[in-house]
Amino acid sequence: MIDPSWIAALGVILFGIGLLGTFYHKNAIVVLMCIELMLNAANLNFVAAASHYGDVDGWVFTAIAISIAAAEVAIGLAILLSLYSTQGTISLDGARELRN
């Protein structure tokens, strides 16, 4: 089996790239995708810890995190479509209904 610290290192790199994407884009769908990337990096860390300690709880947390991510994407895209039908844009700079 592969050394668990390598898997955690991959998780760190993917998390950083996802963080960069959330700063970099103003399209809300791409920001949502980058958040998914960061969630996946967290899952990689859970799996690394599970295989290091030989404890299955890390896998359970990963399965729960994947389910939560599915729910989050459904809600997030529903909010974005609702925003698009009221504002006509999904740009994060253009949505200003809730500002002030």
């Binding site: 991959l10 790239i17 960069l20 994407g21 970099y24 980058c34």
Partner: peptide, 8 residues
């Protein structure tokens, strides 16, 4: 990593 960079 290449896929993540391509995504961003």
């Amino acid at each position: 990593i290449v896929g993540a960079l391509g995504c961003v």
